[in-house]
């Protein structure tokens, strides 16, 4: 289900004194199975952009094609789009409302009009994926911990079996352990189900680790787009936007300046370790 966005612009409160341009001529493409990171500051237009991808917002101008279908067309059923494009909002635990965890996760599939057996199958499957024990199914979603609530909310989207999964700051407000768990889960889901995954974040570290492609947004425009290595090579530009590169990348750049033979587009600690060890051995041998 490739995504293609063409010249997308969006203006909030159009025609009032409060009009603000949230998106300005945004164009990009996402291929099947890609893991895409969208990064940018608060107010850079990331959240506005992803809300266009499942028809929650209608563009002021521009086109959005999902699997070749223009979803800005009035004839396209929004229900069909939302079935395919699952969107997990920021702090999704605030949308929980049912008496039991089971019922809450079943809300999405029920709205899709599935049979009861199918709903039950999907709910338990989703609970397994996010790592919520099946014994909790009849508990109230308000009784469990914050991290669990968030996973329940994500399960609510997964149970709809979307072919495109979008997550808006899924780690916001979680402790380091919770962040790690959620991110690894997302990666696991992506690898297992091969769905397009779009992860919105303002943490370079989170995005650098998993993304095949990074979209850097600034003031409603796409500033840089490319593979993590391509993006992090533009460190100065990123710093100007106040985003910076992952700490390990910036360490590698500093080392390179000091004469260490290490590429400047290092992404992970493992990679850096390899190069540094190789360099240290190299100098020792001399």
């Amino acid at each position: 289900m490739p995504i293609k966005v063409e010249n997308l612009s969006f203006v909030y409160n159009e025609g009032t004194p409060y009009a603000t341009v949230a998106l300005n001529n945004v164009t990009f493409e996402i291929q099947d199975e890609e893991f895409v990171g969208i990064i940018g500051h608060t107010g850079s237009g990331k959240s506005t952009l992803i809300q266009h991808l499942n028809g929650l917002l209608k563009p002021t101008s521009g086109k959005i094609y999902i699997n070749g279908v223009d979803i800005t067309d009035k004839k396209v059923s929004l229900k069909d789009i939302r079935k395919e494009v699952g969107l997990v909002f920021q702090y999704p635990e605030y949308q929980l409302f049912e008496e039991t965890i089971f019922k809450d996760i079943a809300f999405g599939p029920t709205n899709l009009g599935l049979s009861e057996e199918e709903i039950e199958k999907r709910v338990y499957e989703a609970m397994d994926i996010v790592g919520i024990s099946r014994e909790l199914a009849d508990k109230s979603p308000f009784e469990v911990s914050g991290g669990q609530k968030r996973r329940i909310a994500i399960a609510g989207i997964l149970a709809m079996k979307p072919r495109i999964l979008i997550l808006d700051e899924p780690t916001a407000g979680l402790d380091p352990k919770g962040r790690e768990e959620i991110l690894n889960k997302i990666k696991e889901i992506h690898d297992k189900y091969k769905m397009i995954t779009i992860l919105v974040s303002h943490s370079m570290e989170d995005i650098a680790r998993f993304a095949d492609k990074i979209i850097v947004m600034n003031k409603g425009r796409i500033e840089i787009i490319g593979t993590p290595r391509e993006v992090f090579r533009e460190a100065e530009k990123l710093e100007k936007m106040g985003l910076g590169v992952p700490q390990i990348t910036s360490l590698a750049r500093e080392l390179q300046k000091k004469g260490v033979t290490i590429p400047e587009d290092i992404l992970t600690i493992e990679e850096a370790k390899e190069y540094i060890i190789r360099y240290l051995r190299g100098t020792k041998n001399v």
């Binding site: 939302r82 079935k83 809300f107 899709l112």
Partner: peptide, 13 residues
């Protein structure tokens, strides 16, 4: 608006 959107993303009408 936010909650409405979140539930609409889950197919609420």
């Amino acid at each position: 608006e936010k909650i409405m959107k979140a539930q609409m993303a889950r197919g609420a009408d």
